[in-house]
Each structure stands twice: as structure tokens, then as C-alpha cells.
């Protein structure tokens, strides 16, 4: 198999790789905020339960969670395994990444000086007004660098979907590598992830710069 054919075949999985990436971000970024707020909830059982869930999601491998979401329903209830693997993949990834984002958001929210809440309270801002107008915009600016870290990790983590044979780029590359006894597909994959992440880093740097109008 020529290099061009390999690249061509692997590119066919690119759409699926991008689907995992963008759908995971789409769901996990807002879900992380909900988890963060539950994690800081005044009701102790809610807080404790959320903390426990976060610790499981961060403490076990993403691959294991992916297998559990994909095949768990079959072993538990005899339900048929989803035909379209994208669904369990995005569910597992979104939940896993939401746990990481939640802790980043929490750190951001807790780093806000109490004076911001007090200034808003004295001016008559309600809880929601204070959160959405005063706190959240400043938290977003503070969390961009750690969120960038996670987004870069996500690019590379899309390759873990090979564990459930979802036909993304790395899965196809691994199949070619096996059938052709060649290491070349892995090199191609490596170059791809590197370029993808260079792009991610550039975009995130632009966002950081855009938020640089205040300190």
C-alpha cells in the first residue's frame, strides 16, 4: 500500500474524529458548569454525591468508561449495542470531560474576590444577575488557559475510540498498520494530531488575546 493510499484511507476517518471532538466540547463545556455548581451546592448530600462522581470519572481510565457506556447496557439489561458508536462515544467523552471542566470552573469561581459579590449585592443585583453579569465573564477569562490544556488532551483522546472500533482516523490507521505490518500509519496519525493541536493552540491563544482588554 502506498503512502498516498494510507493517507487517503485514514482521512476518511477524519470526519468521525472531528465529530467526537466537536460534539464532546459542545456537550461537556456547559455540562461542566452544571456539575461545578452542583459541586458547590449548599445542600451537603448533593455536594458529596457530585464530589464522588467526579472522583470516579477522574480516577478511572476514559477507555474503561467508554467500554462501560458502549457495552454496559448489553451486559446489564441485554440491550443491543448501539449501531452508531458515535452516540456512546460522545456520551462517555462528554461526561468524562465535564468532570475535568467542572473542577476548572470551580477553581475559577472560587478564585473570585468576595468584594465582587458584595459590590453587586449593594447595587441590588440578584443572585442570577451577579453570576451571569459579574462573576461568569471574569471566570471565563481565568479558565481559558486550563481549558486549553483539556481541549488539547481531547484531540489526542479521540484515538481512544478505537477501543470500541469506532471508525475514526486512528482506528483506521491501526487496522492498516495490522494488515500491512507497517508503522507508517502511526506516524501519519502523529503528524495529524500535532497539526490539529497546533491549530487548537492558535485558536485558544486568539481567544485569550481577545479577553485581554481588562485585567
Amino acid at each position: 500500500m502506498t503512502l498516498t493510499t494510507m493517507i487517503q484511507k485514514m482521512s476518511e476517518g477524519l470526519g468521525n474524529t472531528l465529530s467526537i471532538f466537536f460534539l464532546t466540547l459542545l456537550f461537556s463545556l456547559p455540562l461542566g458548569m452544571i456539575v461545578a455548581l452542583l459541586r458547590m451546592c449548599k445542600v451537603k448530600p448533593v455536594r458529596a454525591a457530585t464530589t464522588a462522581v467526579i472522583s470516579i470519572l477522574r480516577g478511572t481510565p476514559l477507555m474503561l468508561q467508554l467500554l462501560a457506556v458502549t457495552y454496559g447496557p448489553f451486559y446489564l439489561f441485554g440491550a443491543s449495542v448501539a449501531r452508531n458508536k458515535l452516540i456512546p462515544v460522545v456520551i462517555a467523552y462528554s461526561i468524562n470531560y465535564a468532570a475535568y471542566f467542572a473542577e476548572i470552573y470551580r477553581a475559577g469561581i472560587e478564585s473570585m474576590p468576595v468584594g465582587q459579590y458584595e459590590a453587586a449585592a449593594v447595587l441590588g443585583y440578584g443572585r442570577a444577575e451577579t453570576f451571569f453579569r459579574i462573576i461568569l465573564p471574569q471566570v471565563i477569562k481565568r479558565v481559558v488557559p486550563p481549558v486549553t490544556n483539556e481541549v488539547i488532551t481531547l484531540v489526542k483522546d479521540t484515538s481512544i475510540a478505537f477501543a470500541v472500533a469506532y471508525q475514526e482516523m486512528f482506528t483506521i490507521g491501526k487496522q492498516i498498520a495490522n494488515s500491512q505490518s507497517s508503522f507508517t500509519p502511526f506516524l501519519i496519525a502523529g503528524v495529524f494530531y500535532f497539526v490539529f493541536n497546533a491549530l487548537v493552540a492558535w485558536i485558544m491563544a486568539r481567544i485569550e488575546k481577545k479577553l485581554d482588554y481588562y485585567r
Binding site: P113, E118, A119, G124, I134, Y214
Partner: peptide, 19 residues
């Protein structure tokens, strides 16, 4: 809420909204 609008407070460390 209505009583709050009858007073204002200036803080020691300003607490302006930086954004």
C-alpha cells in the same frame, strides 16, 4: 431590595467590576 436602593457603599478596595 427596595430598601437597598436607598443607600450606597464605597469600599476600602473599590471593588469595581474589572471587565
Amino acid at each position: 431590595k427596595s430598601i437597598r436602593s436607598s443607600f450606597g457603599l464605597v469600599f476600602q478596595n473599590f471593588n469595581l467590576f474589572p471587565h
